[in-house]
């Protein structure tokens, strides 16, 4: 057990699973980097450094640098998964789903169903999400809601290093296609992570903080925004329960509903989308199944219905803040 960042935890998970199972491979753009150049191999180790050093341990036959061809990467991963490998494919930024979504949602996600249950597609797509790095409209989105709505896919978004390692190992061992969303701003966040391998089951929310007055459901980096708000409100005597579902598909509906039954108030903090996003999805769930428990309106705290802006003051205004969460809860409980 030692403190590890999310980046380190993910790297360790990949190495341990590749050592355990020779069918696990990594493929993507610059997962090593340096091929065909005049410098060194493993020049990048992943665009954000997550796969650094893995090629040195497992070789180029299993850590495969590809051309910049997202459709071919996703399709090759799906085809390899259906024929006996366990590929971990990297989609550098989730925004690039635009040039490869067919291979994910029409192909990988549907194989099992449209082929009558006769195949499995154990692939993982690791991708990055999140605004806050001044990377503007095409490198900053949190599009997990779009994948969540596709039957056949599983969607995972860890908020801390312990979860990151255990959920990635579970994703690699899972026999269905899993989309694994890593928030770019969380990579350096550290916590205690066991050195041994472990798997966290999908569909079990983490109750990050227990409280009795109001329930916050938050995803990925928004979990930390929710926690910050909960700490501020605790000093004012408001007891906040913070739930991190960890996976949106499958979704731990029971933990969310139980909490709302207890508190009577729900706030969802979600960076995905103002319309048809996870906030709307959770709100719909609670209205349908726990309507009688609600003692006030459900508050959805999301970015506005705009693309992610570039200029720092604009981007800061775009991302949900702890202050906004606190204000909403104070007003709600007044």
């Amino acid at each position: 057990m030692s403190k590890k960042t999310i980046r380190e935890a993910l790297n360790e998970a990949l190495r341990q699973e590749m050592a355990r199972d020779g069918q696990v491979i990594i493929l993507g753009e610059d997962v090593a980097g340096g091929h065909g150049g005049t410098g060194v191999i493993d020049a990048y180790g992943g665009p954000l450094g997550v796969t650094k050093g893995v090629i040195g341990e497992f070789g180029a036959n299993r850590v495969i640098d590809t051309p910049i061809s997202e459709s071919a990467i996703m399709g090759a991963a799906a085809g390899a998964a259906a024929t006996g490998l366990r590929p971990v494919a990297e989609l550098m930024f989730v925004d690039f789903m635009g040039v490869c979504f067919d291979q994910i949602f029409n192909q990988a996600a549907k194989f099992r169903y449209m082929f009558g249950g006769k195949t499995k597609t154990p692939m993982v797509v690791r991708t990055t999400i999140g605004a806050g790095m001044r990377t503007a409209a095409q490198h900053s989105q949190c599009l997990y809601h779009m994948f969540t709505s596709v039957p056949g896919l599983k969607c995972v978004m860890p908020s801390n290093a312990y979860d990151a390692k255990g959920l990635l190992i579970e994703a690699i061992r899972d026999d269905d296609p899993v989309i694994f969303f890593e928030n770019k701003l969380l990579y350096d966040l550290a916590c205690d992570v066991p050195d041994e391998s472990y798997a966290i089951p999908f569909g079990e929310a983490n109750v990050v903080r227990e409280g009795g007055d109001v329930t916050i459901v938050a995803f990925s980096r928004m979990v930390h925004i929710a926690e910050e708000a909960a700490k501020t409100l605790a000093a004012e005597g408001i007891s906040v329960e913070v739930i991190d579902p960890r996976t949106t598909s499958p979704l731990d509906e029971e933990t969310i509903l139980d909490s709302v039954e207890k508190t009577g108030f729900l706030v969802v903090v979600d960076e995905s989308a103002a319309r048809c996003g996870m906030a709307a999805d959770i709100a719909g769930l609670v209205v349908e199944q726990a309507f009688d428990a609600l003692r006030g309106p459900i508050i959805q705290i999301t970015p506005p219905h705009t693309p992610v802006p570039f200029s720092p003051p604009l981007e800061d205004a775009f991302i949900p803040t702890a202050g906004a969460v606190c204000d909403a809860i104070r007003k709600l409980l007044k």
């Binding site: 491979i25 493929l27 036959n61 299993r62 495969i64 459709s71 071919a72 996703m74 399709g75 090759a76 991963a77 799906a78 085809g79 390899a80 998964a81 259906a82 024929t83 006996g84 490998l85 590929p87 067919d102 291979q103 029409n106 192909q107 194989f111 449209m114 082929f115």
Partner: peptide
């Protein structure tokens, strides 16, 4: 590996099957 209702859908998948053969 499947008929495919998306025109151009199968070539990426097929190179994946070839990748399996190569890796193994």
């Amino acid at each position: 590996l499947g008929a495919n209702a998306i025109v151009g859908g199968n070539p990426p998948l097929v190179i994946g099957a070839a990748l399996t053969a190569k890796v193994k």
